[in-house]
Amino acid sequence: MAVVPLLAPNPRDGLGRALLALDARPKLAFALLTGLILWQLPLVALLFPAVFGFLSCRALGAFTRTNRGLWRMAGMFILVWSGLKVGLDIWGGADLGVGLAAGGEFGVRLVTLVGLGFTLTLSTSPRRLGLGLAWYLQPLLRSQAWKTAMALSLMIHFLPLGLAALGGLHRGLAMRWSDCPWQIRLRLIPLGLLRVLSQATWTQTLAVAARNLDHPQAWQPERSVHLWEWIVAIVPALALLFTVVSG
């Protein structure tokens, strides 16, 4: 079972390395703020996060053959939702031109969101993402926050394992029963996946316990966030917010 991460970073230059080195907490703050502001940004201002998303994805080596499948899925996601937007607007009484323009604008916002999302995922390991999120949830969850970090890390870590198992099942079925009717395929593959993943989940639970990672000390942030890291992340987000507020 070849396990390849959903998005494999491969930093190409200084920007890529800088993004990888940046702590997860400011990155999460930037992502959260920008993700909310994005929907209200004027199109011209939207260009900045869109270009940043593209450049950072490029700097992190996102446009590789390894990541091709995921980009295709993201493209499909954007196309489907933009198409739905066009369809719903026209159904709601809008002209074709107006509907297409609204769908296009919606698509651009989604492209920006996907670019920024991939930047966050590429530049932050599942463990650091989990630790970052747990840090924000600390006031709410108190001593249980580490469990969030562990759960999120393991969940993200498990995704490629699940996809690899799914790919293996597809290939196995295609070899054993090439003209298998889709109805049977629809039943067999989920059942097989459930069987494989339930075993893997048990083994992973044992592995986490065997590595002594099921205690709070193993899920503490490795360092504190530098002031410049907060500035680098928050100032651009605030600038975008200012653009929205000032109209």
Partner: peptide
């Protein structure tokens, strides 16, 4: 199962 034991990136 090394793939399930290795958790870091």
């Amino acid at each position: 199962e090394a793939d399930l034991t290795i958790i870091g990136t």
